[in-house]
């Protein structure tokens, strides 16, 4: 999504009613984050909407992008938020070999998720297709990517072939670097 540098066009304030909706959506999507929502997104805070190309909207607080969303799809957290609250998001882990491809912006293939260094949740905690997941890396403390599951975690184990997770936001991409500017 953010392979190229993001050229933001304009920042607008979000209506408080819309902001409430966003808050609620985030809580629904990430139930684990719900107890922390007041820290991430204080009730009284004024969110800003930054529009990026290709119908991507960024939600920012104090010039810090917290969440982003493509059109009307699922809301996804910025990696800085993930680093602050790592245990609040569904997580999978990839092996070491895959890291450099992720940081280059590649899609995540199944074998990288099933090899010995990787970790998928057990069968009883199956993550369904289309869920926003955080991708951790073998031997690393911090997450390196945010993506959407292309198939459920059980299917990844079963098929072990093809595109497993869509790469939406990774360390060092346009969105990550945008904050530096």
């Amino acid at each position: 999504m953010f392979k190229k540098p993001v050229s933001a066009s304009g920042k607008t304030k979000i209506k408080s009613s819309v902001q409430r909706n966003i808050r609620q959506k985030i809580c629904e999507q990430f139930p684990l984050l719900a107890p922390n929502i007041d820290d991430v997104l204080p009730k009284k805070a004024q969110l800003d909407l930054i529009k990026a190309p290709d119908k991507i909207s960024l939600y920012a607080l104090d010039n810090q992008v917290l969440f982003f969303q493509h059109h009307d799809d699922a809301i996804m957290p910025h990696l800085k938020v993930v680093h602050k609250y790592p245990q609040c998001f569904p997580t999978v882990q990839v092996d070491r070999g895959a890291i450099r491809f992720i940081l280059g912006g590649a899609q995540l293939m199944c074998p990288g998720l099933t090899s010995p260094g990787a970790k998928l949740p057990p069968a009883e905690e199956n993550i369904p297709e289309g869920t926003v997941v955080v991708i951790n890396a073998e031997g690393k403390e911090n997450a390196c990517m945010v993506g959407v599951l292309k198939m459920s975690s059980e299917d990844i184990k079963r098929l072990n072939k093809g595109n497993g997770v869509e790469n939406c936001h990774y360390l060092g991409d346009g969105l990550w670097k945008m904050e530096e500017a």
Binding site: K84, P86, E141, N142, L171, G172, W176, E180
Partner: peptide, 17 residues
């Protein structure tokens, strides 16, 4: 109970952890 935010250090050169 809410968990406390974890502070992460970011590299001053390449900005990644």
């Amino acid at each position: 109970a809410p968990v406390t935010a974890r502070e992460t250090v970011y590299c001053g050169v390449c900005s990644l952890p």
